[in-house]
Amino acid sequence: MVLSKREILDRMQTLAVSDRRSLVITPLLYKEESDVFDADSVDLKLGCYFLLPKMLDQPFFSPDRESATSLHVKVHVPLGQFLVVPAHQTILGATLEFIKLPSDVSGQVLTKSSVARTFIIVETAPWIHPQYRGCLTLEIANVSNTPVLLYPGRSICQLVLMHVVQEKNTRGSKRGGRNRKGDVKPDTSYFGPVYPEAPKFRDPQDDLLKIGVRKVASLKKKQLVRENEEWKEES
């Protein structure tokens, strides 16, 4: 069941922040409710920090523990300034609003229709789990043939919230587990970010070992060193 504007406002305004049913969206700036609320969604604004793809020093990106943060360069664009997203490029941004979801609510982030019509697509991994807290990292893709300007502080996406029917005797999320009240504990690997976050990976061999794979190919090359008239891999 999708949460209505009234329920969203009730959960934001009447419940204490420590209440597991409370919802936080801050700072939510509006004169009239209709500025940010629809009957079943809330508009979110673009924040001031971005991660832009960076030129790598190798011809590929390997999603492993070591190189996960080497893919991006962080950029700050204050309110009033703009960022140019080149044609056919994807960047990471974050919402201006910090969000805390209740323990019985999931969320989905959707591109605002007016933004989508400029050939900007927000989010390809749009699901937000209960208890999530933080500014939402947004994958922002410019699929048009022209560069597009993004202004921090302008609405970019909408958040739709859905009630989660709690099942008894479940064991919690894959990383979080449950607390004594039976709530899913939040996953702390992406806990409370206020900037867009780079992905966090384990090494592929560790992930694959879990399903019994014991031989894993690697593209990582060692440096070659000339020794005794021949090239050898550096130890």
């Binding site: 305004q13 922040v17 420590s18 936080v24 801050t26 700072p27 910090f98 805390k100 807290r133 939040p186």
Partner: peptide
């Protein structure tokens, strides 16, 4: 403190920041 205790950015529910 209530906000920080639950891992949330401190904010006021009133119009006064």
């Amino acid at each position: 403190e209530d906000c920080l205790e639950v891992g949330v950015v401190p904010h006021a529910k009133t119009a006064t920041p």
